Every structure is written in C-alpha cells, then in structure tokens.
Amino acid sequence: MHIPVLGLGTFRLKDEVAFNSVKMGLEIGYRHIDTAQIYENESEVGAAVKESNIPREEIFITTKIWTENLSAAKLIPSLKESLKKLQTDYVDLTLIHWPSPNQAVPLEESLLALKEAKDLGLTKEIGVSNFPIAELKKAIEILGSEEIFTNQVEVHPYLQNKKLIDFCNTEDIMVTAYMPLAYGKVVKDETLIKIGEKHGISAADVALAWLHEQDLIIIPSSTKRVNLENNLNFPEISFSKKELSMIAGLDDGSRIANPPFAPTWDK
C-alpha cells in the first residue's frame, strides 16, 4: 500500500490552529495527515479534508487508538467515533498509540480487535506506535509481522533509535518517525547547520534528508506555510561518511515523548 514518505503531523495542534495547518498542508500538496484520538483534533482534520475537495482516496489518513480504548469492547466503537469526526468511512492506517499502561489490557486483545476493524473495512492497514523491541516481538507473535504496517516512534538526530530501526527492518516493518525536528532543536544545531552549508540547505533539510536516507516515513509538524512548504520539499542528498559520523555523534538519547506510562525503552 502506498504511503507518502512525508506527512503532516498534528500533535499539539488544537481547534482552528489544527484546521488551518491541515488546510494549508493540503493546499501545498501534502497527501498524508497524521492524527490521533488523544490529540482532540480529528474533527478539525476531517473538516479540512472535506473542505479541500481532494478525492478521499488521494489522502492517506492515520489515526491512533488511545490507551483508554484498547479493550475489545471499546476499540472498534472508538474507531467508529473517530471516523465520524474525520467525516470518512475509513482511515488508511490505525495504530495502537501506546502499549497498554501496566498491561491493563492484554496486547492480544487489542491487536485482535484492531485486526477485526481492518476486516470490517474501518481501516485499510494497522500498526503500532511507541513500541520498543520487546513489545513489538509480542505483537509479531500475535499477528505476524506482515500485519504490522508500521511502528511509529520518536526519531531525530538526538534520539536515533538505531537498534529498534534495525529490528523493524529485519522484520520488514516500516518505521514512521515523529518529532523529526525535535521541536525546533534541529534548526539551531551547529553541526547540522555546518553540514547544511556544504550542501546549500538548511539544518532542518539535513535532518529530514538523513531520515529519508534510512527509508523512514517522516511526519513533521508546523503551523507556518513557509515551514510546511520547506518540509514537504526537502532535498534528497547523499551524505559522506564523515557527515554521517557527525550526525551519529549527536545521538544522546534525548527523548521528548516520555510519559509516566511509557514502556521500557530500548537502550
């Protein structure tokens, strides 16, 4: 199934801000929108998609099931509510947003309900988010790696997640990188600026091109048209061994998304 390499993230975007960001993104050329139940902006995303008049089949929409809705009794009804808000009969991809805190809901129960949602046509593909290797192995045992479309995790120069990415590659599971610009930290990074100057591009472009070179799906976020345009049109470049070593040296394990209920991360 085709998924645009670069998508528009909507985390922390609310109300009119979310609507305007998605509307601008679609006008500029984005065809991949990422949202989630907990973002509380599915209605705004749906309204922007509807107003765009772009054929539904040309837009790849991802949403995520929140931890409170992971039980067999709640997952499908909650997804149907998401579809109602998004004003669509289906989403292209539905993810388990986080492993169930303290394993309150067995992973098998959630994954089988998610697979049922796919069988019902509510979602075309299914996957997971914020799953370390241990949890991903469990998911593979339950469904098989062929059913897991992607694992969406935080990846940027300061949290390169190489061990997890290598495992996903071995299992033929795509990795989707969220927070690819580390909430603006990338833009001011002297190392990335220096590398960018050699290629005539920005530090942000360096980060996105570096992620793309690893065959990752990338979902940056912005509310400014110029940033949305720049992100969408990032260049594809080849890095020298020295440049890759410089970027590798930035990895200090800095993690932005790390709530109290997060799983045990890979080291």
Rank of each mutant, 00 (worst) to 15 (best):
F239W: 12
C168S: 06
S82D: 02
K185N: 14
N41K: 15
T223K: 00
L211Q: 13
N161H: 12
R255K: 13
S238Y: 06
N161D: 10
E58W: 15
V22A: 00
K50T: 14
H156Q: 05
A117D: 15
A47P: 03
G144F: 06
R255H: 11
K188G: 04
H156M: 01
D205E: 08
N233E: 13
S52R: 00
E171L: 14
P55V: 04
I33W: 03
S21P: 03
E27R: 00
I256K: 11
L244K: 13
S129A: 04
A204C: 02
Y183Q: 15
I201N: 02
K163A: 13
Y90W: 08
E147Q: 13
K118M: 05
K80W: 06
I219Q: 07
R31T: 08
N102M: 10
A177N: 12
V5R: 13
M179I: 10
S129R: 08
E116I: 05
S52F: 02
K14R: 08
A117E: 07
R225L: 09
F60E: 05
K242F: 11
I126Q: 05
L122D: 05
M246K: 11
T176H: 09
A182N: 11
Y183E: 15
I65Q: 15
A262L: 06
S238T: 12
I201H: 01
E16C: 00
S43P: 12
V155T: 08
